[in-house]
Write a protein that binds this DNA or RNA. Structure first.
Lengths: 232, 232
DNA sequence: TAATTGCATCGTACGGCGTACGAGTCAACC
DNA sequence: GGTTGACTCGTACGCCGTACGATGCAATTA
């Protein structure tokens, strides 16, 4: 099976540029490519959300026929995977710098991670159900290396990475969920307030209603890091 | 709008029992009800996963026509919401007990939460994109109350709840994701190992490959609680 | 008893989806 | 000139969620 062009990362190999169109119709689109498909998918996801991504619609934006996409990707799920991973690339201080401030590095990377996801809120609902792409794994690798350099012994490394990862995933998914999935911000708030008699403590702490998500995130991260490797 | 029967929780109000069938065909099914629909949806989700839940299939299992469901629920999304919340009911020591061991209580509830979700792995991909139902809110309320009783001041309560919530959500979604979404356990493992040259530290810590998820969870939770409220 | 009402069920049909299939185009190579 | 292989796309199929209206039946009313 697998006729098409899966397996390798081959882009355009042979001919280039020559427009496949004979006349000069108003078809100025560049040729289809995996890069364009993924980038356009991200745009579409940003604009319309997870449910807004349809193969036909994506093809429209690309100025191509729907079935042309299937030369470049195996199926729609693959589009999701690629879009997700592409958005999570980390452009930060790579391992070149042997900074002493490991805690700062970790905080920076995790906050960048969270920021990337919040910039594309659909990632929150996708990440939990898709496989880990190379960019995600790279982040985990960098996290591991930093923690290791910070003195976390190998036996604890696993737990430490997991805890931080879990924290970021949880924080961003919940946050994005609240910005989006609830039909309306006001409606959700009213619903919560209406029910607040049943949930007095939640109400008192103004959970979900206060808007200092950023502060809550970094403060919680601090607590977690304190637990993982107490400041000496 | 809204003719049907939304808004209230009315179950059967008037007549009961009399079979709507005239003869005695092999149709022994009890009448449709919201409870049966939700319970059957949970079964179907357990068996077939998120993508396996189709309104027609659900109706089949209920011995009814597909459109009959729409008398009881507004749409498919509502089925998801109800199934999700129904599975997260907490049957644990409610606030009656004024135990001194707040830390034990919290650990117990969070581990129960995680266990509930892992028993129904589809919850992991649903929770991040659905609204919070009453059972979920009840858990949060209980968590708040316990933390509050443990001496966490109101100013920190928000952050504390969030951190714990995030940790649980993250841990369960990732875990469930690994059990399921990757086509095959073996395939995933091989993929990771094949790529391990790019991710040496991950490989060394045997992240994702070791199977002591339970241990990692409770250990991470311990770290987090240490940070939130250091043992005195 | 007869007519009416309202809860509940369900058959049919519609529009939209992902994508299988196979035909088409064109550059490169023999 | 013929062949090949990379790439595009029109058509069609099966499945989905669900709008709509017909139908049945119990309770209510006259």
């Amino acid at each position: 099976m697998a006729a098409k062009r899966n397996g390798a990362e081959s882009k355009g190999s042979g001919r280039r540029g020559a427009s496949p169109r004979s006349g000069q119709e108003p078809r100025s689109e560049p040729p289809l490519s995996l890069e364009r498909i993924v980038a356009t998918a991200v745009d579409l996801l940003d604009a319309e959300g997870v449910d807004g991504l349809k193969m036909r619609r994506l093809a429209d934006r690309l100025g191509s026929g729907a079935m042309s996409l299937y030369w470049h990707v195996g199926n729609k799920e693959e589009v999701f995977d690629l879009a997700l991973d592409s958005v999570l690339e980390y452009r930060g201080p790579s391992d070149i710098v042997e900074s002493r401030d490991w805690r700062g590095e970790i905080v920076h990377m995790l906050e960048d991670w969270r920021a990337s996801m919040l910039r594309h809120p659909w990632t929150a609902s996708l990440l939990p159900r898709r496989a880990l792409g190379p960019n995600i794994l790279s982040r985990l690798e960098l996290l591991s290396k930093t923690l290791s350099r910070a003195g976390v012994v190998d036996a604890d490394l696993n737990v430490a990475i997991w805890s931080l990862w879990n924290f970021v995933i949880g924080a961003t998914t919940t946050r994005a969920n609240f910005d989006l999935s609830d039909d309306d911000r006001a409606a959700a708030q009213q619903r919560l307030t209406g029910l607040s008699q049943h949930y007095p403590t939640i109400e008192r702490s103004r959970l979900l209603l206060d808007n200092d998500w950023d502060g809550a995130f970094s403060k919680g991260l601090d607590f977690l890091l304190d637990g993982l490797a107490p400041r000496q």
